[in-house]
Design a protein around this nucleic acid. Structure first.
Length: 218
DNA sequence: GAGGAGATCGTCT
DNA sequence: GACGATCTCCTCT
């Protein structure tokens, strides 16, 4: 058990990810994505995910079989799959299902929790003084640009393919991992995934209903 | 507030 | 050689 500011949290187990990506995507809502850096801990609460099924899912990177790029998704569960998109952005996924069976979950959006100033700086956003102490709608509008969106999450947590692809996200020794601080999600909404063309109709996007940090349309 | 276009490059065909 | 699990900026309303 570690502590982050005033809270406590426990690591998720490998078994948590050794399941159907749809169950993992739903289960990850409310959990914390954290990264330890030399200058402090960065953390955000996961509020939006998308499941990518390894088999029978034309939109998944694994649809056409194993390649050097997607190898992590075919590997053991609980590892980071990071890919580069549109010449500009990195997107973070976590591998699911047993070694040899492809599948994963994309992190689409998170609510900034700790290390907010550092994450804003990594994103090139200048927060006004006392932004962290703000409340209500004003705070939401200030913080939403930090990590609402797949590319934004990676930039805020300083995640790159070169450094993070294939890294273990459950080991307590890892400097980037997914943990549970006891938060319980009340209501989960399910919609089709965003930004894809193939298999676009399947309801595989999950988000915390009513959470203001969800990206896109909620 | 909504909608459209450009940026930019790794990956696979 | 085409395209993509995105984001930002700009324009129009």
């Amino acid at each position: 058990m570690d502590t982050i500011s005033q809270g406590r949290f426990t690591s998720l187990s490998t078994d948590f990810f050794n399941r159907d990506p749809r169950r993992v995507a739903r289960g990850l809502l409310g959990k914390l994505l954290i990264r330890k850096t030399p200058s402090g801990i960065l953390a955000g609460r996961i509020v939006e995910t998308e499941a990518y099924l390894g088999q029978g899912d034309a939109a998944a990177h694994t649809a056409a079989g194993r390649t050097p790029r997607n190898a992590v998704l075919f590997g053991p569960p609980g590892h980071a799959y990071v890919y580069f998109i549109y010449g500009n952005y990195y997107c973070l996924n976590v591998s699911c299902l047993p070694d040899g069976v492809p599948g994963g979950v994309l992190f689409r959006s998170m609510e900034p929790i700790a290390g907010i100033e550092q994450m804003a700086e990594a994103r090139g956003i200048e927060l006004p003084n006392n932004a962290v102490e703000e409340t209500g709608l004003r705070k939401i509008s200030l913080l939403k640009k930090i990590s609402s969106g797949p590319g934004r999450i990676s930039e805020a947590l300083e995640i790159t393919r070169e450094r993070d692809n294939g890294k273990n996200l459950v080991s307590p020794r890892s400097d980037r991992r997914i943990v549970d601080d006891g938060d319980r999600v009340r209501r989960v909404a399910v919609t089709p995934r965003i930004g894809i063309v193939k298999s676009a109709e399947q309801p595989l996007r999950y988000y915390i209903a009513g959470n203001p940090f969800v990206s896109g349309h909620s």
